[in-house]
Design a protein around this nucleic acid. Sequence first.
DNA 1: TGCGTCTTTGACAATGATTTCCGCTATCCG
DNA 2: CGGATAGCGGAAATCATTGTCAAAGACGCA
Lengths: 137, 137
Amino acid sequence: MIADNAAQSAAVRNTRQRTAVSSLLAEVEGFHSAQDLHAMLRDRGERVGLTTVYRTLQGLADSGEIDVMRPPGGEHLYRRCSSGHHHHLVCRSCGSTVEVEGPAVESWADRVAAQHGFVDVSHTLEIFGTCKDCATA
Amino acid sequence: MIADNAAQSAAVRNTRQRTAVSSLLAEVEGFHSAQDLHAMLRDRGERVGLTTVYRTLQGLADSGEIDVMRPPGGEHLYRRCSSGHHHHLVCRSCGSTVEVEGPAVESWADRVAAQHGFVDVSHTLEIFGTCKDCATA
DNA sequence: TGCGTCTTTGACAATGATTTCCGCTATCCG
DNA sequence: CGGATAGCGGAAATCATTGTCAAAGACGCA
């Protein structure tokens, strides 16, 4: 039997697959689904399992390194975003996204939540519309 | 072969099932998943297919009569809300919801979208937190 | 540097909400 | 009232995501 070796610092290991996902996200623009990213990795010649892609993305999302969006349509979309909290303005037609910031909104959300006694507050905000190009086309 | 009878005004039909879903939503409080609502209808003795519940909810959501929320966790939640545009403050722990309004946020979203040339703008905003009761417990 | 252990991987199956299919029924209009 | 069709509904299909578990690689230590 193996005694629980408390000394083992269970840190995150630096693996080839994790690096691959991370660097891929650093290069691509816009949002991509997990399956998209998996396909891209395969095209690049990286052998990475789909399961691993999901796990890695979840980990990155948890640690705040990437953003997750749940558009109406079912798939989760992941994106490496500029640091700092912000939201997205998304075109319904062509899918292009613009990062927008609204400090006033952040503070409003926190204030409203606090008024109702809520703590540990987070929020999601997405703006959908039709961009100029798609509207004129 | 059936000739296309153009005279048939293909309007929405008023069916027992649609009425049942609608009136159920008028009575219950808070958000419920489609499957929840389906179970409630069966408890009431209404014989309504799960498929129909989904279809009806989608229709009601499209016509703006009910709100849809996509919480992290997978299920779509539906709710008959008070009239007017508003958002929700949701407790992560007990699921209780508070309707909140933020005119400033609405106008901010529209303004930002307009600045980027977006038209036909809508947005989703949800605030998550831990409510007072759950925090002290 | 070599070894042992433990994390991580990855192929496959399982899950579970939502959608599709298609024959049947009920509703609506004339 | 009667014919035509919108809507219903049960089951099967779909599909992204998660669980499982044996095998392989990474890291700390001697």
